[in-house]
């Protein structure tokens, strides 16, 4: 169906003649200019982290600040990595992030479907409560939550960082529900007449049509878990249980921060996030539809 409409669009465009094509080209150039200019600003942190990671301890605070160090200290990378058991931290982080992302997807898709598709008394109230949970400042909830996990004997294990992800998250449920709602009800009705169960409708109709929001939830929960600092700091006690984010923070002392090693290890640890992002962002394929510019 989409292919047909695309062809229709192409016909419409070619009918517009040379001027439309020229316009499209100009628009594409404009888009590139804007993208590159914006990318310059948005790349700053990475560039800055990179140059900092190559400086000597003294060069980090040289004055006036120099952007490119005079000598490149590549050894900051292996030195930084060896300063703490970062390989161990990586294993822990992958474990926490992997299990949390899977848990988040499962535990948020199901309630989002229920809120979007199944009608019952009390649905509105439960949904309102769901949203309300986002509005309570997490910093005070931390203490009662800690006491709970402490009573369950889970302090200094990775469980307090993984388990909650398997029982839903209001933000992701809200997000998915909003997108599920935009999928026409007629599609499920047709399937239901053919005898499809909820599971079948969810699996074969809703989820395939919800690739973009699922990607968003995957990316968000991946980044949130990968970078989570306060959770691991509160719940974990021994070094062999720590995650990357905590390890990075240990470069920061009471009086001195070891910036060059911290940035070197930071860059290593954000690489997987960038790779995951590049892989999943391809789900945003519609493109070119908004202003009519861009290639086809």
């Amino acid at each position: 169906m989409k292919r047909q409409s695309r062809i229709a669009a192409e016909i419409a465009w070619s009918a517009g003649g040379v001027s439309t094509i020229r316009k499209a080209r100009a628009a594409r150039t404009a888009a590139y200019v804007l993208l590159i200019a914006g990318a310059g600003i948005y790349l700053l942190p990475l560039l800055w982290m990179f140059t900092t990671s190559l400086k000597s301890s003294q060069g980090v605070l040289s004055f006036p600040p120099e952007f490119i160090p005079s000598t490149f200290h590549w050894e900051n990378y292996p030195d930084g990595w060896k300063a703490l058991p970062f390989t161990r931290f990586t294993i822990n982080t992958v474990l926490v992030t992997g299990l949390s992302v899977i848990g988040t997807l499962i535990s948020c898709i199901l309630p989002a479907y229920a809120f979007a598709r199944l009608k019952t008394r009390g649905r509105g109230a439960i949904f309102a409560i769901t949203l309300a949970t986002m509005m309570i400042p997490a910093e005070v909830l931390l203490v009662p939550q800690f006491i709970m996990f402490s009573k369950a004997g889970m302090v200094n294990t990775l469980w307090p960082l993984i388990l909650p992800a398997w029982f839903g998250n209001a933000f992701y449920i809200f997000l998915l529900r909003q997108f599920f709602l935009t999928i026409p009800q007629e599609l499920d009705d047709a399937a239901r007449i053919d005898g499809a169960s909820d599971w079948r409708i969810l699996w074969s109709i809703i989820l395939p049509l919800s690739k973009p929001p699922l990607v968003a939830v995957t990316v968000f929960s991946f980044v949130a878990n990968w970078n989570n600092v306060i959770g691991p700091i509160i719940y974990l006690r021994s070094l062999d249980k720590y995650t990357l984010a905590v390890g990075l923070k240990l470069f920061q002392g009471q009086h001195v921060t070891d910036y060059n090693h911290m940035m070197a290890v930071s860059l290593i640890t954000i690489a997987p996030i960038v790779v995951v992002f590049l892989l999943v962002q391809r789900a945003f394929i519609q493109g070119a539809t908004l202003t009519g510019m861009g290639g086809r």
Binding site: G38, Y42, P45, L46, V219, V274, F277, L278, F284
Partner: peptide, 14 residues
């Protein structure tokens, strides 16, 4: 897209 998303990844002290 990855570049524009970077600031959301690079969190904290940096």
């Amino acid at each position: 897209r990855a570049i524009f998303y970077l600031p959301a990844i690079v969190a904290g002290v940096g």
